[in-house]
Simulated scan of single mutants.
Amino acid sequence: MENHYTRSRLKLGRVAEMSIENPNIEFPWQFHFPPFFTLQPHAETRAKQIAAWRSLVLEWYGATRQSKVDVREAGRGPPFANATINRRFPEEGITAVMEELARTGHAERLDKQGYTWAVHCGRTIDEWADCLLSWARDNGMSGTVCTLYELTHGDDTVSCDFHGLDEETLVRSVLRLQQRGNAEFMDFDDNRGVKFF
């Protein structure tokens, strides 16, 4: 049964070519167009370019479950570089994409300089929190303590979007549930978990 917390594929008008680095990602046509890797000077064109990068980055980090981006290093590989056409997006462009993701709640700056960012694996923290809470309620887990490991690596969550989620994003999502009064974050005996309400 397909639920809102189970995996679903994004259909973003992608071409059929798949990434060698991650077979679950289809790059947009722009990825093979050299000007895509140059920050456009015209405001309207730049807005469209950043929107395309935003979609690609959300899909990439959602599928790969990577969460940290260092803008000084990110241009060395996918999704910010395309070795086939010998192009990479500049730091200024990567920063603009991260700022747009932060504006929509999909990323957070981790340092004052703006070099290091946390990308929330394709969703906002609120969306991940809702996903966790829906799963807990649908599976009768209210009042139950689950370890973070069980949530991200357990057999009961294999079909869930949060299975394999990085711990930092998971903790932020659980803390958001705690703020809402839907869960309690627990830290015990070298392990961390959550009690759902």
Results as ranks from 00 to 15, higher is better:
residue 146 C to Y: 05
residue 17 E to N: 07
residue 172 R to L: 14
residue 45 T to R: 15
residue 192 R to S: 09
residue 61 Y to F: 15
residue 15 V to I: 14
residue 86 N to I: 10
residue 45 T to Q: 15
residue 83 A to P: 12
residue 150 E to W: 06
residue 113 Q to E: 13
residue 110 L to W: 01
residue 30 Q to D: 09
residue 27 F to Y: 11
residue 140 G to T: 01
residue 5 Y to D: 00
residue 152 T to R: 12
residue 70 D to T: 12
residue 123 R to M: 03
residue 123 R to Q: 05
residue 158 V to Q: 09
residue 22 N to H: 11
residue 177 L to Y: 04
residue 59 E to P: 01
residue 114 G to P: 00
residue 117 W to V: 03
residue 64 T to Q: 06
residue 49 Q to K: 11
residue 125 I to T: 05
residue 1 M to I: 09
residue 48 K to I: 13
residue 154 G to C: 02
residue 48 K to W: 12
residue 98 M to F: 03
residue 136 A to W: 01
residue 185 F to S: 08
residue 124 T to F: 01
residue 30 Q to T: 08
residue 78 P to C: 14
residue 81 A to W: 11
residue 193 G to W: 01
residue 54 R to E: 13
residue 138 D to N: 04
residue 197 F to Y: 15
residue 149 Y to G: 13
residue 194 V to G: 01
residue 36 F to V: 08
residue 28 P to I: 00
residue 36 F to P: 09
residue 9 R to E: 06
residue 17 E to F: 06
residue 186 M to V: 15
residue 3 N to G: 09
residue 165 L to C: 03
residue 145 V to E: 14
residue 22 N to Q: 08
residue 58 L to G: 03
residue 120 H to P: 04
residue 146 C to Q: 11
residue 120 H to A: 05
residue 138 D to K: 02
residue 111 D to Y: 00
residue 34 P to M: 06
residue 25 I to F: 05
residue 93 G to E: 01
residue 48 K to P: 10
residue 122 G to W: 01
residue 74 A to Y: 10
residue 185 F to Y: 15
residue 6 T to Q: 03
residue 19 S to L: 08
residue 49 Q to E: 09
residue 197 F to K: 15
residue 115 Y to K: 12
residue 141 M to A: 14
residue 160 C to T: 05
residue 2 E to W: 04
residue 184 E to Y: 06
residue 89 F to Y: 10
residue 59 E to A: 07
residue 85 I to M: 00
residue 146 C to P: 04
residue 137 R to P: 02
residue 47 A to G: 09
residue 126 D to F: 05
residue 60 W to T: 08
residue 39 L to R: 08
residue 89 F to N: 01
residue 91 E to W: 06
residue 93 G to H: 02
residue 40 Q to Y: 08
residue 173 S to R: 02
residue 58 L to V: 02
residue 112 K to M: 12
residue 34 P to W: 03
residue 166 D to N: 13
residue 16 A to D: 13
residue 138 D to L: 01
residue 106 H to Y: 01
residue 36 F to A: 09
residue 72 R to E: 13
residue 130 D to E: 09
residue 136 A to I: 02
residue 41 P to R: 03
residue 13 G to T: 01
residue 176 R to S: 11
residue 141 M to T: 10
residue 12 L to R: 10
residue 75 G to C: 04
residue 76 R to A: 15
residue 177 L to H: 04
residue 128 W to N: 00
residue 119 V to A: 07
residue 185 F to G: 06
residue 165 L to G: 03
residue 68 K to T: 15
residue 25 I to T: 05
residue 161 D to N: 10
residue 129 A to C: 02
residue 105 G to Y: 03
residue 120 H to M: 06
residue 27 F to T: 03
residue 121 C to E: 13
residue 156 D to F: 04
residue 160 C to A: 13
residue 114 G to N: 00
residue 96 A to V: 06
residue 102 A to Q: 07
residue 155 D to W: 07
residue 181 G to Q: 04
